[in-house]
Simulated assay, not measured.
Amino acid sequence: MRASNVLNLGVKELRGLQRDPMLLLLILYAFTVAIYTAASAMPETLNKAPIAIVDEDRSPLSARIAGAFQLPYFTRPQLITAAEMDRRMDAGLDTFALDIPPNFQRDLLAGHAPTIQLNVDATRMTQAFSGAGYIGSIVTSEVNEFSQRYRAETVVPVELVLRARFNPELNKGWFGAVMNVINSITMLAIVLTGAALIREREHGTIEHLLVMPITPVEIMVSKVWSMALVVLVAAAASLIFVVQGLLRVPIEGSVPLFLAGTALHLFATTSLGIVLATLAGSMPQFGLLLMLVLLPLQVLSGGMTPRESMPDIVQVIMLAAPNTHFVMLAQAILYRGAGFSVVWPQFLVLAGIGAALFTFALGRFRKSLK
Rank of each mutant, 00 (worst) to 15 (best):
R2I: 06
N5V: 15
G10K: 05
E13M: 10
E13S: 13
L14T: 06
L14A: 09
G16H: 07
Q18H: 13
R19W: 11
L23V: 12
L24A: 02
L24Q: 09
L26K: 02
I27S: 00
A30P: 15
F31E: 06
T32M: 04
V33N: 01
I35A: 01
A38F: 12
S40L: 14
A41K: 11
A41N: 13
A41P: 13
P50W: 09
I53P: 14
P60F: 10
R64I: 14
G67L: 07
L79G: 03
L79T: 15
T81E: 02
A82C: 02
A83F: 04
M85C: 13
D86N: 11
M89E: 07
A91R: 12
D94C: 03
T95W: 04
L98W: 11
L98I: 15
P101V: 04
R106W: 13
G111K: 06
H112S: 12
A113Y: 12
P114T: 11
I116D: 05
T123P: 00
T123W: 04
R124C: 01
A128Q: 04
F129K: 02
S137C: 04
I138G: 03
S141Y: 15
V143Q: 00
E145K: 13
Y150V: 14
R151V: 13
L162E: 12
R163V: 10
A164F: 08
G173T: 01
N183D: 13
L188D: 00
A189W: 01
A189T: 09
I190D: 00
A196G: 08
R199L: 08
R201E: 11
E202F: 13
E202H: 14
H203T: 13
T205F: 02
I214T: 10
P216D: 01
V217T: 09
I219V: 05
V221C: 04
K223Y: 01
V224N: 05
L229C: 12
V231L: 08
A236Q: 06
R248T: 12
I251G: 00
S254P: 08
P256A: 05
L257W: 02
T269W: 10
S271C: 01
L272Y: 10
I274G: 03
V275N: 00
A277K: 06
T278I: 03
T278P: 01
T278W: 05
A280F: 06
M283Q: 05
P284A: 05
F286A: 06
V293C: 10
E308Q: 12
V316F: 14
I317H: 00
T324K: 00
M328R: 12
I333Y: 11
L334R: 00
F340I: 15
F340L: 14
W344I: 08
Q346D: 12
Q346C: 01
V349Y: 14
G352M: 12
G354L: 05
G354A: 02
A355F: 13
T359K: 06
T359C: 08
F360Y: 12
L362A: 11
G363C: 03
R364K: 10
S368K: 03
